[in-house]
């Protein structure tokens, strides 16, 4: 199990008396790009919030590289397991201020050269540093959001539908960027996507979730030949 980035053991989670996650057992391999696919309401985003410590499971255990999540200090956990959301929320101010945010929270400042390198890593020009972050395009904000999460040098990066509202070109840019970061830093990537083609293209490992359950998991190629009838229907587009 030393090659497991995150392991789930009998994880259950409810909110407002509604069971969101039901008895989740599975893992994500370390250093790889994994994807989570499944229809809306499958509990995918909630799963991320459990990994990042924004929510706690009702029962069961989550282990990050073998260490139970409950044994991490929340701040340490969130720096280790970064998350980039579809909304790519920007704080008021410049790109630099947004990039510096994770360090400012630790009472530190960012080195300009490091900031430029991060921007370069995500395909943004160094000239962007002083631009107003809220005036960037959706794709640029998403890239900045990823760069900002990378400032903490997370070991696992959770990506929650980061390309779903972007055009094809920006989608492609982000896919390349994620592969590049994975190669350069060896960061484990877990990507929630609605796009099965994308999951096949970029993911080496995949989870299929439905109605709060993990239905199938394995090499991404399973999406071409799923065993479970529900997954077969989902892949055919009969379940959205």
């Amino acid at each position: 199990m030393s090659q497991t980035a995150i392991l789930f053991q009998d994880v259950n989670y409810s909110a407002d008396d509604l069971k969101i996650l039901k008895n989740i057992n599975g893992y994500f391999p370390e250093g790889k790009i994994a994807t989570i696919v499944g229809p809306s309401g499958a509990g995918k985003s909630t799963l991320f919030k459990l990994c990042n410590g924004l929510r706690s499971p009702d029962s069961g255990e989550i282990l990050i590289k073998g260490k139970p999540i409950i044994n991490f200090h929340p701040v340490e956990l969130r720096r280790k397991v970064g998350i980039a959301l579809q909304s790519a929320t920007m704080i008021s101010g410049s790109v630099l201020e947004n990039l510096e945010l994770p360090l400012r929270l630790q009472g530190k400042t960012i080195d300009i050269e490091f900031a430029k390198e991060l921007l370069h890593d995500v395909g943004l020009d160094g000239d962007f540093l002083m631009r107003n972050a809220k005036e960037l395009s959706g794709g640029q904000q998403q890239k900045l959001s990823i760069a900002r999460t990378l400032v903490n040098q997370p070991e696992v990066l959770l990506l929650d539908e980061i390309t779903s509202s972007l055009d094809r070109v920006s989608q492609h840019d982000i896919e390349e960027l994620i592969e590049k970061i994975n190669e350069k830093y060896g960061t484990t990537m877990i990507w929630i996507t609605h796009n099965l083609e994308q999951a096949l293209r970029i993911g080496q490992y995949t989870w299929v979730m439905m109605n709060g359950e993990l239905i199938e998991s394995g090499e991404s190629s399973l999406l071409r030949n799923p065993q479970d009838k529900r997954v077969q229907e989902f892949v055919k587009g009969e379940i959205v």
């Binding site: 990042n52 969130r78 970064g82 929320t89 929270l105 903490n152």
Partner: peptide
């Protein structure tokens, strides 16, 4: 709410 959760996800404390 988004901003509050963003800061938490980046390792900020509740006060931050």
């Amino acid at each position: 709410q988004d901003e509050t959760e963003l800061i938490l996800t980046l390792g900020g404390t509740p006060k931050q």
